[in-house]
Structure formats: structure tokens, C-alpha cells
Amino acid sequence: MTANEDQEMELEALLSIYEGDECFKEINSVSFQFRIGDIDDTKAFLLDITWPETYPDTAPQISLDAFFNKRISGETKHLILSKLKEQVEANLGTAMMYTLFEWAKENQEALMENHKPVVIAVATSGDGGTSTSKKKEKKEQLTKSQKRKIVNKTDNKGELPRGWNWIDVIKHLSRTGGKDDE
């Protein structure tokens, strides 16, 4: 069999095995994502796997660079990748995706035992309070009369009536002029 036939057969098998499984996602015919653990779990991680043209005779490309993995330290990512590469080398030449996914699921605790969630940057300001690196958007301050006008325009549900922002066509044309005024 050629590499493409092996890939087609493995893809078909993966789609039938993981049909309806929210952990598995096919990005395209040679690229997949598989989440190990629950979404809420701090020890969960997402594997990005891409097949080269000669897969399964050559190793797939495995990545942990997904945004989902932002809270995992670089050391833990390196450990996971090195252990997965050992599994890849042991299964080289055969369809190995299912084996990799199941191995990662079974060994999640061992892979993540030294995991300490990475804290997103929080800076302390001079007054003792904390502020995040993102600036909060300031809401526009409205005067009492502006607020009153908004309330008067809305109905009892707080919604604006249909057509509140429509342009009065006659008034608009009288100000701008029509085609005949040229």
C-alpha cells in the first residue's frame, strides 16, 4: 500500500472511532486536534498532529502550541512531546494515531504530575492594588438629559422602537439636494 492509501484508511478508522467525540477534531485530511482531559481540568492539554506526505513511514508532527495550552509551562510541554516521540518511534511504519491518543489519555496524570498552571501576567500598581495588563475600556459618561432622551426613546422592555434610526428621506434630500439640483 502507498502512504496515501494508509492515510485514507487510518482517517476513515479515526472518523468512525471518534464520531461524536468532542475531544477529537479533524482540521483537514492530514491535520487533527485531540484534547486530553476535560475542558475545565487545569491538567488538560490539546495535541495538534499533522501527517507529512510519507506518514506512517515518517513521524507525524506533534505540537502543543495551541492557545488552549497557554497555561502549561514549557518544561511540561517538552516532557509531553518527548514521551509522545518515544511512542511514535515505537510505532513507526504503522497507523499510530489511535495508539497515541489512547496512550496520552492513559498517561495524562504521569505527564502532568509536575504541572503548575502558568499565571497570566498580573502587575501590582503602586497603591497596593492589582491591575491586569489589559486596560479596561472607559464607558462614555452621559449627562442626565442624554440618559433621559434614551429612556424616552425605549419601550417598556428597554428596546428601541422599530425604525428609530431610519432617515427621514424627504428631510435628507431637502438638505443635500437631489439629482435635479445639479
Rank of each mutant, 00 (worst) to 15 (best):
P52H: 11
T94N: 13
F32S: 08
S31W: 00
E109M: 10
D65W: 00
I80Y: 02
T99L: 04
P56I: 03
I72T: 07
D41P: 07
N28K: 07
T94P: 01
G93I: 03
S82T: 13
V88G: 03
G37L: 09
E89C: 02
S63Q: 10
M112S: 07
M97S: 14
W103N: 04
T50H: 02
M96T: 00
Y55S: 02
P60Q: 06
E106K: 15
E75G: 11
Q33V: 10
M96G: 07
G37H: 08
L79K: 07
S82F: 05
R71N: 15
A44K: 09
I72V: 14
T99A: 08
E53C: 00
S73V: 08
N28I: 05
A59R: 00
I72R: 02
S82G: 07
E102A: 06
T42H: 09
L84S: 05
T42Y: 09
N91K: 05
M96E: 04
N28G: 09
L92N: 07
F67N: 12
Q108R: 15
A110V: 14
E106F: 14
I62T: 07
Q108A: 13
A90P: 01
N28E: 11
A95T: 12
A95Q: 15
L79D: 08
M112V: 13
G74K: 06
A104V: 07
L100Q: 03
G37F: 09
N69E: 11
N69F: 09
E113I: 14
M97L: 12
L47K: 02
F45V: 08
P60V: 02
D48N: 14
N107Y: 09
F24Q: 11
L92W: 02
K85A: 06
M112H: 10
G37D: 06
I36H: 04
W51D: 01
G74H: 01
E86Y: 01
Y55P: 02
A110F: 15
E106M: 14
K70T: 12
S29W: 04
I27E: 10
D38T: 06
K105F: 04
E89S: 02
H78E: 15
C23A: 14
A44H: 07
F45E: 03
D65P: 01
M97D: 02
N69G: 12
T50A: 12
A59M: 05
I80T: 06
W51H: 10
D41A: 12
H78A: 15
E26M: 14
D41R: 10
K77G: 13
S73Q: 05
V30L: 03
D48W: 00
L84T: 01
D41V: 09
A104E: 07
D41L: 11
L64R: 02
S31C: 15
S31Q: 14
R71S: 15
V30N: 13
E106P: 00
G74F: 06
I62M: 08
P52T: 08
F101L: 07
F32H: 05
I49T: 04
